[in-house]
Amino acid sequence: MKSHFKANGIDATVLMDGNYALQICVDPNDMMKGVFRISEQLFLRVACEFQSLRWFAEEHSSIFSDVVGDVSPITMGTHGLINESPPGWQGLKCLLDDPA
């Protein structure tokens, strides 16, 4: 799964914390470039609906490219602008990474 996301230019961190299965982002060092979490319920659909892992990664990677387009300029005064990532979303350890 991680390699499928990586092939699409997206970093994936496996969480499986009871709520979220994955956290995907454009740049794990700069969450302001885009970050999204995939719930365990949504990820369960891969197995229950016999979905391809490659397709799943491609579909969910596309959210980052879909937001780029004809939008008005964003400034620090833009209503609703989030200027930092949610607490606990940065510096995560992937469940599948080597513990060493």
Rank of each mutant, 00 (worst) to 15 (best):
L42V: 12
C25K: 06
G77C: 06
N8W: 00
M1Q: 07
E84G: 04
M76W: 09
G80L: 12
L53T: 06
E84M: 07
R54C: 00
V35M: 15
R54Q: 01
S85A: 15
E58C: 01
V26T: 15
G80F: 00
V35W: 14
W89L: 11
L96V: 13
E40N: 03
R37S: 14
Q41R: 13
R45V: 11
K6W: 05
G18Q: 06
P73F: 11
T13H: 02
K33E: 09
L92M: 11
K33M: 10
M76L: 10
E58H: 00
G91T: 08
F50E: 12
S72I: 06
F36S: 13
D70H: 10
D70S: 10
S3F: 01
G80M: 04
C48R: 14
V35N: 14
P87V: 11
A7T: 08
L22N: 01
S85Q: 11
L95C: 08
Q23V: 07
D70E: 14
D17M: 08
S62M: 05
F36G: 05
A100P: 05
C94L: 03
S39P: 02
S39N: 08
H60W: 05
F36T: 12
I63Q: 11
K6Y: 04
D30L: 03
I82C: 13
W55N: 13
C25E: 15
T75G: 09
A12T: 08
F64Q: 13
S65N: 11
I38T: 03
E58F: 00
D27S: 08
S39E: 14
N19H: 13
P99T: 05
P73I: 15
P99F: 02
T75W: 03
G9F: 07
L95P: 00
L44A: 15
N83P: 01
I74R: 05
A57F: 02
M31A: 14
M76N: 12
K33F: 01
Y20V: 04
I74W: 06
H79E: 12
D70L: 07
D27I: 07
S85C: 08
V67R: 14
M1S: 12
C48N: 14
P87I: 06
V68M: 10
V14R: 06
V26R: 08
K6E: 15
C94P: 08
G9E: 13
Q90D: 15
R54D: 13
A47L: 03
G80T: 04
N83Y: 06
H60R: 02
N8V: 01
S65L: 07
W89D: 12
D27L: 10
G18Y: 09
P87N: 02
P99A: 09
A12I: 06
E49W: 11
T78K: 01
G77H: 13
R37P: 06
I10V: 15
S3C: 02
V46Y: 02
D11L: 07
L22H: 02
G80I: 01
G34W: 09
G88Y: 00
C48W: 03
I74M: 06
A100K: 11
H60E: 07
W55F: 07
A21D: 00
S3N: 10
V26F: 10
S62R: 04
S52W: 04
L22I: 01
S62Q: 05
D70P: 03
F64D: 13
W89E: 13
P87T: 06
M31G: 11
F5H: 02
W55K: 08
D98L: 02
G88Q: 05
L15I: 09
C94A: 12
G77Y: 06
